[in-house]
C-alpha cells in the first residue's frame, strides 16, 4: 500500500480534548435506596424484641468461646481427613486398576448421595448395628464408648468431605498437562513420586479456590453435629437459650462467630494461593 501524501479533510481535530467524567446517577440512586432499606432493617432490629445486652454478654461467654473452639477444631480436623481421603480417592479414580477405580467411584456415589445429617446419625448410632467393635483377638471395645460425639462427627464430616474433595482433586490433577507426567517418568520417577512431587503441587494451584469454598462450607456444616451432641458453638448456644429463652439473641451470637471466622479465612486463602502460585507469571519480579 502507498502512503497517502495528504489526508482527507472533514474530520475535526479532537486530539487536545479530554474525556468528560460520566455522572453515574443510577448508581447513586441505587446506593441511596439500599441505605434506606438497611436503615429500616437496622431500626427494626434495634426496636424489636431483642435484648442487645444479652448479645454482647454472651458473645464472649465461656461456653460460647468453647463452642467456637470446638467448631474450629472439628472443621480443621474433618477437612484434613477430607483432603487426605480426597487425594487418595482421586488417585484411585485416575488409576488404570479397574478395582481401585470402581471402589473410588462407589465411595463418591454413596457419600455424596445421602444427606450429611443422616450420615452423622448413622455414625453416632453405630452401636445399634455393631455393639462391639475391634480387631478380633487383638482389641475390642463397646461401640457406645468409642463412638463419642467427637469421633462420630469427625468421621461423618471428614468422610463426607472426602467424597466432594476427591472430585475437586481429580479436576486439579486432570488440569496438569500430561507432558509433566511424562517428563517426570523420563527422569525415572515412579507413578506415586511423580504425583507427589510434580502433579499435585501444580494441581494445588487450581484446587485451592474450590477447597477454600469447601472449607467455609465445612465450618458451617459442623453445626449439624449439634444433633449428635457435639458441643460446637450452635449446640452450646441452643443449650443456653433452652435455659434462658433468649433464642434470637443467642442465634445472633452464634451467627456473628461464624461470620467472623469466615471473614478471617478469606485472606488466609489468598496467602495459600500465593504460596502455590510459585513459578506462574503473576509472581514474576
Amino acid at each position: 500500500m502507498r502512503a497517502a501524501p495528504t489526508l482527507a479533510g472533514g474530520f475535526p481535530d479532537i486530539s487536545e480534548m479530554t474525556v468528560a467524567r460520566q455522572v453515574h446517577w443510577q448508581r447513586w440512586l441505587a446506593a441511596a435506596a439500599i441505605l434506606v432499606v438497611l436503615a429500616a432493617i437496622g431500626r427494626a432490629f434495634v426496636n424489636g424484641q431483642i435484648e442487645w445486652t444479652y448479645v454482647s454478654r454472651f458473645l464472649t461467654a465461656k461456653v460460647i468461646l468453647e463452642g467456637i473452639t470446638n467448631t474450629m477444631v472439628m472443621a480443621v480436623l474433618a477437612m484434613a481427613l477430607g483432603i487426605v481421603l480426597g487425594v487418595v480417592v482421586a488417585i484411585m479414580r485416575l488409576s488404570s486398576n479397574p478395582v481401585l477405580a470402581s471402589v473410588a467411584a462407589g465411595y463418591t456415589w454413596l457419600f455424596r448421595g445421602t444427606p450429611l445429617i443422616l450420615q452423622l446419625l448413622l455414625w453416632f448410632n453405630l452401636a445399634l448395628v455393631f455393639p462391639t467393635i475391634g480387631i478380633p483377638g487383638l482389641w475390642s471395645a463397646r461401640a457406645v464408648d468409642v463412638m463419642t460425639p467427637f469421633l462420630s462427627a469427625l468421621l461423618g464430616l471428614g468422610i463426607n468431605q472426602g467424597a466432594y474433595t476427591s472430585e475437586v482433586m481429580r479436576a486439579g490433577m486432570l488440569s496438569v498437562d500430561v507432558g509433566q507426567y511424562e517428563a517426570a517418568q523420563a527422569i525415572g520417577m515412579g507413578r506415586l513420586r511423580a504425583l507427589r512431587r510434580i502433579i499435585l503441587p501444580q494441581a494445588m494451584r487450581v484446587v485451592i479456590p474450590p477447597l477454600g469454598n469447601e472449607f467455609i462450607g465445612m465450618v458451617k456444616a459442623t453445626s449439624l453435629a449439634s444433633v449428635i451432641q457435639y458441643p460446637e458453638v450452635l449446640h452450646n448456644a441452643e443449650n443456653i437459650y433452652y435455659a434462658n429463652s433468649r433464642v434470637i439473641e443467642l442465634l445472633i451470637v452464634a451467627g456473628s462467630w461464624y461470620l467472623l471466622v469466615v471473614s478471617i479465612l478469606t485472606p488466609l486463602q489468598m496467602l495459600l494461593e500465593r504460596r502455590f502460585a510459585r513459578g506462574t507469571l503473576q509472581i514474576t519480579r
Binding site: 509433566q180 517418568q185 503441587p201
Partner: peptide, 20 residues
Amino acid sequence: ARQRLKTGMVFQRFNLFPHR
C-alpha cells in the same frame, strides 16, 4: 523406571516443571 534412567529424553514442548 530403573531402565528409564539409562535414557534421557528431551521433548518438543520442553515440559519443564513450572513450579521449580
